[in-house]
Nucleic acid binder design. Sequence first.
DNA 1: AGTGTATCCTGCAGGC
DNA 2: TGCCTGCAGGATACAC
Length: 284
Amino acid sequence: MPELPEAETLVRGLRPALVGRSIVQARVHKPDILRVRPRRFRDRVRGRRIEAVGRRAKNVVLLLDDGVIVINLGMTGWLAPLGLGPHDPPRPTHPAVTFRLDTGRLVFDDVRRFGCVEALDPGEWAERDATFGPEPLTDAFTPDDLFERLHRSRSPVRSWLLDQRKVAGVGNIYACEACFRAGIHPARRGVTVTRDEATALHAGIRGVLGAAVEAGGTTIRDYRNADGASGEFVHRLDVYGREEQPCHRCDDAVERIVFGNRSAFFCPSCQPMIDDAAWAARAS
DNA sequence: AGTGTATCCTGCAGGC
DNA sequence: TGCCTGCAGGATACAC
């Protein structure tokens, strides 16, 4: 569920509550949320101090005085700071890991348990960090770079955008929205995207992610920020979840198709399909 | 190598 | 009411 804007919103809410706190002990309620045995995990985090709270791709990153906790929220994961501010968020319903702090506690709550909590040493974290593509809201992400790499791929653009090694933090909602903003059919092969279209896609990705961060993310069903509040960007989506509703640009009906086992939403008029044959004809 | 599919898990909505 | 199917914001292990 959470993509870059949702993880970023959560991080911004957690930061003031968590920086400077120490982890007294961790309790693992659902061991399948870890990648190591619970005992090993507990040993790695016990007694550590939280120096900083950040985000990389869709992950919440707790920088410790010795090591790093990386939390992948999966589809339904969120972090509840309890006893750390004036108001508590709603009570977690499916706690997977609880960090008992010197003051209060932090609960990783995850209904579907697709999330993952890891305790890495600095070297392991550097390795992991290097597997992610550029952060789309930083200068490391440029239109030229996007074009050069996308143009070499035969993947559908939507699928390419979901690959965290290509661009960090983009998920299904914002991939669909960015394609709409750029006028690119989500199933078009990367190789068919022109330099101008890649520039528009770059602007679309940045625009939609930036606006969604400002709006506190998108709540379709489960997403909650650190206060337990919903994300308001759901009201500003152009195509995602809007099957059969009028396109905000041309009034035609938004369509839904499935590929890569996931729904893609698009406007058939604003985002015409260009397949290999059409691409060949256009190139000649 | 690079793409596409199936799968992990739970909850909910809709059809009958 | 209850049972069934399909669907969900992610990531990855496989098949080709």
